Simulated assay, not measured.
Amino acid sequence: MDSLRIGLIGYGEVGRTFSAGLKPGAVWTGAWDLKFDDPAQRDEPLAHAMAQGIEACDGVASLCAQATLLISAVTASNTLAVAEAVAPHIRPGSVFLDLNSASPGTKQRAAALIDAAGAHYVEAGVMTSVPPYGIRVPMLLGGAHAARLQPVLAALGMEATVASEKLGIASATKMCRSVMIKGLEALVIESYTTARHHGVEDAMIATLQETFPSIDWHKQGSYFFSRVAQHGKRRAEEMREVAHTVREAGFEPFMAAAIAQKHDWMAAQTRAGLFADLGPNPPWQAFADRLLAARGPAANDETIE
Rank of each mutant, 00 (worst) to 15 (best):
94 S>Q: 01
196 R>I: 04
262 K>H: 10
74 V>I: 00
215 I>C: 07
103 S>C: 04
146 A>D: 05
15 G>L: 05
106 T>R: 04
159 E>L: 13
205 I>E: 06
179 V>N: 09
159 E>G: 10
274 L>S: 04
304 I>E: 12
253 P>V: 03
56 A>L: 00
185 E>P: 11
217 W>T: 05
299 A>I: 06
226 S>E: 13
137 V>D: 00
187 L>G: 14
158 M>F: 06
5 R>Y: 00
201 E>L: 09
182 K>M: 07
264 D>T: 08
295 R>Q: 15
57 C>Y: 08
91 R>V: 09
215 I>H: 11
294 A>S: 15
128 T>M: 07
293 A>L: 15
71 I>W: 01
302 E>V: 15
163 A>C: 10
159 E>C: 11
166 K>P: 03
246 V>P: 13
224 F>T: 03
275 F>S: 08
296 G>T: 03
214 S>F: 13
255 M>H: 12
135 I>M: 10
63 L>N: 07
304 I>A: 14
86 V>S: 01
2 D>P: 09
24 P>F: 05
57 C>Q: 10
56 A>P: 00
290 R>Q: 15
282 P>N: 07
158 M>L: 12
181 I>T: 05
42 R>N: 02
105 G>A: 14
34 L>W: 07
301 D>R: 15
148 R>W: 13
119 A>Y: 06
184 L>Y: 04
9 I>V: 08
166 K>G: 13
275 F>T: 08
224 F>Q: 14
103 S>K: 01
242 V>Q: 00
126 V>L: 03
82 V>H: 01
265 W>Y: 14
135 I>S: 05
134 G>V: 02
161 T>A: 12
103 S>W: 03
62 S>K: 11
209 Q>D: 14
270 T>C: 06
136 R>F: 04
236 A>M: 00
301 D>W: 15
195 A>P: 00
234 R>F: 05
283 P>A: 07
192 Y>F: 15
195 A>I: 01
142 G>D: 08
80 L>C: 02
43 D>F: 06
175 M>I: 08
194 T>Y: 11
114 I>C: 01
59 G>T: 04
298 A>C: 06
133 Y>I: 06
51 A>V: 06
128 T>P: 07
86 V>C: 00
262 K>S: 13
260 A>V: 04
301 D>E: 15
253 P>A: 03
214 S>K: 14
46 L>G: 02
69 L>F: 04
224 F>G: 07
266 M>E: 04
261 Q>V: 10
178 S>R: 08
188 V>D: 10
65 A>D: 08
234 R>H: 02
204 M>G: 09
271 R>G: 07
16 R>W: 05
23 K>N: 06
22 L>E: 00
208 L>R: 03
66 Q>V: 05
5 R>F: 04
69 L>M: 13
190 E>W: 03
100 N>H: 05
296 G>M: 03
19 S>I: 02
26 A>D: 14
166 K>Q: 15
1 M>D: 09
125 G>H: 12
236 A>N: 00
